[in-house]
Design a protein around this nucleic acid. Structure first.
Length: 724
DNA sequence: ATACATACC
DNA sequence: TACTGGTATGTAT
């Protein structure tokens, strides 16, 4: 009796189960061309099979299949009339979208090659040439190109990666390091487009239209030059894509990765040709699920297919989704630089080994609340909507949200409501808890909501270029606080000690380019005012405001360094006292520091001598700022809490309130590394000089006349990272 | 306004 | 042993 051997073929659904287990990291990435994909998939499958994670992935996959089936059915039950209707709608929309095509801009997308891994290789050159991954056994952030040859990829758990590549070297992530390098490359980007858009630590979009025009250099040479400069500055390679819009530029930067570039000319036919054969998955915003849906429901594989099926797309998707798909089909994308990019939420989450221990869970929640509140304070954010995120031991994600009566940034509030939300979900075995705050406070006009809060405008002379006439409505005339405005020219001497002042600056100029910057800043007209409306000596509002009005655009000499957001003055501005602390509170400043000289802190490191702040300094300052904030809030009760900058304040810093400034000083200056995300658009710099505090017993400095409980603030206008 | 899903790095 | 963390946005209710 002859029986046919049961032979598995690729069409047998159960024969090669690994083929159907696709995750983000089984997808191809730059540098994975020669990889045995079949083998990688098999290993990934074998390592994952049977786990909770795997089961959840299977569940998600099934849901996706269901969705696809639903949409298929929807397609089929479309009548001929309906189809004709949507087809017409779609055709019209395509014409409308085509009319928006803008080929006048040249966008460049820069993407560092294996950024984290490359940085780590710089710090430890022995890693060069060896397969290496940044991350842990749980998760890999980045793999270098050697590791990618084994199928090891970002977003792959380390233990699977090790299976694929037993000799793989793991390096733990060190965000501080990457942020440092990120600041360096952004400094380069800024030269080509001061308003460039940072997409992440290692990616940015630059509008190079102007540079190309001004220097009369083709875009490919600009790209080449930029990449060379980045390499010279950092030793890191990057790839670039040039195209008429950001969507295409992003696609282009991936084409000749690593260490390459691709230019798509500003020509409609070139764009159409380019896009037509492009697989939709290459487009940013189209991920695994969308790819599957578009392929399995509509048979769409390339961007060209989007236009082919535009009638169906308009029939089955929302307006915004359909528009996006049609735009992709036309090769359209954003070409303008957004005015301001405001953060919309802030969150944190932690994964831990799954537990149902409620005390433990509440403890984690408390930790997250503290963390979140502190992050919010750093950015001056106040939000109304709190979202609790949970991941069960089975990897199911749940979110529970509540919108509060009033805005808050207090960890007590957060914990209180987060606990309520959590309580309703217990008992549960959880492996992750997260908290998010959104719905931030911002009144549309960007004015301080506190009528008692003086804005910088109050301290600016009539006719000053910073004064904008449009907004006097913000400030009632009947304010109790009275500011006597005294205006005077200010020179070096007034800001520092009498002795050796000029010499100090001159001697140090070569070694410390910063000192030049500061000297220029000091040669500017100052307006100072005195507030006597608030009695408390310590109150931030009882300060004398010294406003140094300065037009950055007209003076390149004050070009601020975005990676050095915080400025202090040796010997006077930063001292260890009740309300101020010095880097050098237990010792004399190093000899490289001159009395009255300004220096800059970057990641708590001094720009002059590189000395690092003692951690006690950081902690003390944190407490200090919290103390004052709490005190202020308590005192002000009803009204106004400090906040992040509004669009208007960015535009016109004279809208800034005194409390806002104080807040910025407390919470921003103390966290100089905070603003490294995002571009460089914001318009000013703040430093506070506390003359009321008692002087340390420094031999170099005699106690200077006290200012009778006033708290002077120096404000330097200049460009700065937009995210603070 | 809330819940959940998708996407990106 | 072990499958992240932070932000934005779309979709559905």
């Amino acid at each position: 009796m002859k029986e046919k051997a049961i032979e598995s073929t690729p069409s047998d659904p159960g024969a090669r189960p690994w083929q159907s287990y696709n995750t983000v990291y089984t997808n191809a990435k730059a540098g994975m061309e020669g990889v045995d994909k079949e083998k990688v998939q098999r290993v990934v499958y074998e390592m994952s099979k049977g786990s909770k994670y795997f089961e959840n992935e299977a569940r998600k996959e099934a849901e996706m299949r269901q969705k696809i089936e639903r949409m298929r059915a929807q397609c089929e039950k479309l009548s001929a009339a309906e189809l004709a209707h949507f087809q017409m709608l779609a055709d019209n929309r395509v014409v409308e979208l085509e009319a928006t095509r803008d080929l006048t801009k040249i966008w460049l997308h820069v993407d560092m090659d294996a950024f984290y891994a490359a940085v780590e290789t710089l710090s430890d050159p022995s890693l060069k040439g060896k397969p290496m991954a940044v991350g842990s056994m749980s998760m890999i952030s980045t793999a270098n190109y050697e590791a990618r040859q084994f199928g090891v990829r970002a977003a792959m758990p380390g233990f699977i990666a090790r299976k694929l590549c037993p000799e793989l070297i793991f390096v733990p992530t060190d965000f501080k390091k990457y942020t440092n390098y990120s600041d360096m490359i952004r400094k380069v980007f800024q030269k080509y487009d001061p308003n460039f858009l940072a997409a992440s630590l290692d990616e940015a979009y630059l509008d190079i239209t102007e540079v190309c025009k001004e220097r009369n250099i083709p875009s490919d040479e600009i790209a080449k030059e930029l990449r060379t400069t980045v390499f010279e500055e950092t030793g890191l390679t990057c790839s670039a894509g040039v195209a008429p819009n950001r969507l295409l530029a992003k696609v282009c930067s991936d084409i000749n990765k690593p260490n390459g570039q691709f230019v798509l000319p500003n020509d409609r036919m070139a764009v159409i040709t380019f896009i037509s054969s492009l697989p939709i998955r290459k487009i940013g915003g189209i991920g695994k699920v969308t790819e599957n849906i578009l392929r399995d429901v509509f048979g769409i594989k390339t961007c060209e297919d989007m236009l082919q099926k535009c009638g169906y797309l308009c029939a089955l998707f929302s307006r915004s989704s359909a528009d996006f798909f049609l735009s992709v089909g036309l090769g359209l994308g954003k070409t303008e630089t957004p005015e301001v990019r405001m953060r919309k939420s802030i969150s944190n989450e932690r994964t831990f080994s799954a537990t149902g221990d409620e005390a433990l869970l509440y403890q984690k929640l408390a930790e997250l609340s503290e963390l979140l509140a502190s992050d919010m304070k750093k950015e001056g954010l106040h939000g109304r909507t709190l979202t609790l995120k949970l991941k069960t031991a089975a990897f199911e994600v749940r979110t529970r949200a509540i919108t509060l009566e009033r805005y808050t940034c207090s960890s007590d509030d957060i914990l209180k409501f987060a606990s309520k939300l959590l309580k309703a979900e217990l008992p549960a075995s959880l492996r992750l808890i997260g908290l998010r705050i959104s719905h931030f406070k911002e009144d549309k006009l960007g004015a301080p909501a506190d009528p008692m809060q003086k804005t910088l405008r109050h301290f600016i002379k009539e006719g000053s270029s910073l004064r904008s006439d449009t907004n006097d409505r913000c400030f009632a005339d009947d304010m109790e606080t009275d500011f006597s405005i005294e205006s005077h020219e200010i020179n070096h001497r007034e800001l520092g000690d009498e002795s050796d002042r000029t010499d100090a600056l001159d001697t140090n100029e070569k070694d410390c380019p910063r000192s030049k910057v500061c000297r220029d800043a000091m040669e500017i007209t100052t307006v100072s005012s005195r507030c006597r409306g608030v009695d408390k000596a310590n109150s931030p509002s009882a300060g004398r405001i010294d406003l140094i009005d300065h037009q950055l655009e007209e003076s390149n000499s004050l070009e601020p360094d975005p990676s050095l957001p915080c400025m202090f003055e040796v010997g006077s501005s930063v001292e260890k006292t009740e309300r101020g602390h010095s880097m050098f509170h237990n010792e004399e400043p190093p000899s490289s520091h001159q009395e009255g000289q300004f220096f800059w802190l970057n990641d708590y490191k001094c720009s002059l001598c590189g000395i690092e702040l003692p951690s006690s300094f950081v902690e003390e300052r944190q407490e200090h700022s919290d103390f004052h904030l709490a005190e202020k809030l308590q005192r002000e009760e009803s009204s106004i809490e400090p906040k992040s900058l509004t669009a208007m304040q960015r535009e016109d810093p004279s809208c800034l309130g005194v409390f806002d400034l104080y807040y910025l000083w407390c919470n921003f200056c103390l966290h100089p590394s905070t603003p490294s995300e995002g571009g460089f658009r914001t318009v000013f710099r703040v430093a506070l000089r506390d003359q009321t505090a008692s002087r340390p017993k420094s031999k170099k400095r005699k106690a200077s006349p006290k200012e009778g409980g006033h708290l002077p603030i120096h404000v330097f206008f200049g460009k700065m990272n937009q995210n603070f």
